[in-house]
Write a protein that binds this DNA or RNA. Structure first.
Lengths: 205, 205
DNA sequence: CCTTGAACCGACCCACAAGTCGGTTTGTTT
DNA sequence: AAACAAACCGACTTGTGGGTCGGTTCAAGG
C-alpha cells in the first residue's frame, strides 16, 4: 500500500499545481511542461498517472473545484434561517480572495465555463452541472424561505436564483485580475437592495 | 482608387467571417486556415492585408464589436426619458439573437473578455475600455434620472451600473449555446423587480 | 541478494498553426 | 501593348505542445 500512497501524493501535487496554473493562465494556454517544470516532474511521470490532459483536468474539476464550490456556495445554503442574509454571506465569502491567500475560487467557475464552452463538451457539461446543483439548492432554499414568511409570496424563486447566479458569474468579468474591493462592495450592496425588494415586509409588531 | 476598394472589400469579408468563427469557436481555437478556407482565400492574401492574427482581431474589435455595442447598448442611453425602462429595453434587445438571424452580439463581450484576460493585454484592455464606456454612460443616465425624479435619491448610481453590467455579462455563462427564452425572460423580470426597488415612488396624485 | 513492478525520466514523434516568401494573376496607367 | 503594382497563391519554415516509449531508479517481498 506504500505505492498507492506515493501515487496519491504525486497526483495530488499535480492537481493542486495544475489548478493554480490553469486558473492563472487558462487551460489551453498552459502546456503540461509549464506545470511539470514547476514540480520537477517529467512527461513520463505525468502519463503514468493520467491518460491525457483532458483526463487530468477532469480529475481537477471533480476533486478540487466541485469540493470548493460545494463548501463555499452550496453547503452554507443548508440552513433554516432567513435565506437572504445567508445567501449574501456565502457570496461575499466566495468572492473574498483574502482568506489564507488562497486562490479566488469564486472566480474559477465563470472563467472555465467560458473557456470550455463549445470546445470540450465533456468538461463543459461537468461545469454546467455544478452550476445546476447550485441553482437547485438556491431555489429550494428560497422556496423554504417563502413558506417561512421571509420572502414575499409573489416572488418567482427560479427567476431569483437565475438572477443571483448571473450577477455573481458576471462579477468575474468586471473584477478581472484586480481584486477590486470597491466593486465587490458595490455588488454586495446592490444585491442587498435587490433582496430587500423580494423580502416579505411584515407590519411592525 | 479601384485597388483601395478591392482591398477594403476583402478586409471587410475577412473581418465579418472572422468575427463569426472566432465567436463560435473562440479566438485561440480558430486557425487562420479555418477562416481562409471558408472564404477561399490564401495565407498570402491574409498577410497582404493584416500584419498578424492579433492585428486582424484588433481590427475586428474596433470595426465591428465596438460599433455593435455602441448601437445596441450605449446609444439608446442617450435619452431624456425615464432611464429604467430604456435600460431594460436595450438589454432585452441586446440579448435577443432573433433579429434578422444576426449573431448574438450581446454574448460576445463576456466571451472575449474572459478569453483574452491574462493572455493578451492589448486586446484585453480594448475590450475593458468598451465596458468602461458603457458604464460611464449608464452612470450618467442614472444620475440624470435621479435629478429628474425617476430614481430614488438614496441610490448609488455607480453601484447600480456595476450591478447591471455584472448581471448582463453573467447571463452569457448561463445561456451558453442554447438561446433559452425562459432564462432571458427570468432575467428581464428580475431586473424589473430590482429596478422597481430603486425607482422613486411618488405619491399618487 | 534477486526479482518484480510501480514511479519516474527524457528523447523523440507528430500534428497543427502562425508567419514567410518567391512567384503568378489581375487591373490600371500611359 | 508594355510596364507597374496591388492582390493573391500555396509550399515552406519554424515553434510549440500533446502524447509515446524504451529505458532507469527504487522500494518491498521472497
Amino acid at each position: 500500500m506504500e505505492m498507492t500512497l506515493k501515487r496519491r501524493e504525486t497526483m495530488h501535487r499535480l492537481c493542486g499545481k495544475g489548478l493554480e496554473i490553469f486558473h492563472a493562465k487558462g487551460y489551453y494556454n498552459t502546456s503540461l511542461d509549464d506545470i511539470l517544470n514547476e514540480l520537477s516532474l517529467s512527461k513520463g511521470a505525468f502519463y503514468h498517472h493520467f491518460k491525457s490532459k483532458e483526463d487530468y483536468f477532469i480529475n481537477i474539476v471533480q476533486n478540487l473545484i466541485v469540493q470548493k464550490v460545494y463548501a463555499l456556495l452550496i453547503e452554507p445554503l443548508n440552513t433554516n434561517e432567513n435565506p437572504l442574509p445567508v445567501i449574501i454571506e456565502s457570496l461575499e465569502n466566495a468572492l473574498d480572495p483574502g482568506k489564507k491567500n488562497e486562490m479566488a475560487y469564486g472566480f474559477m467557475l465563470n472563467d472555465f465555463l467560458t473557456e470550455f464552452n463549445k470546445r470540450n463538451e465533456e468538461i463543459s457539461s461537468q461545469l454546467k452541472e455544478i452550476i445546476n446543483v447550485w441553482e437547485v439548492n438556491l431555489v429550494s432554499l428560497l422556496k423554504k424561505g417563502k413558506l417561512d414568511g421571509h420572502i414575499a409570496r409573489h416572488v418567482d424563486c427560479e427567476g431569483v436564483a437565475t438572477y443571483i447566479i448571473a450577477s455573481y458569474l458576471g462579477m468575474r468579468s468586471l473584477l478581472m485580475d484586480s481584486s477590486n474591493k470597491q466593486l465587490r462592495y458595490q455588488y454586495i450592496q446592490q444585491l442587498k437592495q435587490y433582496f430587500n425588494s423580494i423580502a416579505a415586509h411584515h407590519v411592525a409588531a
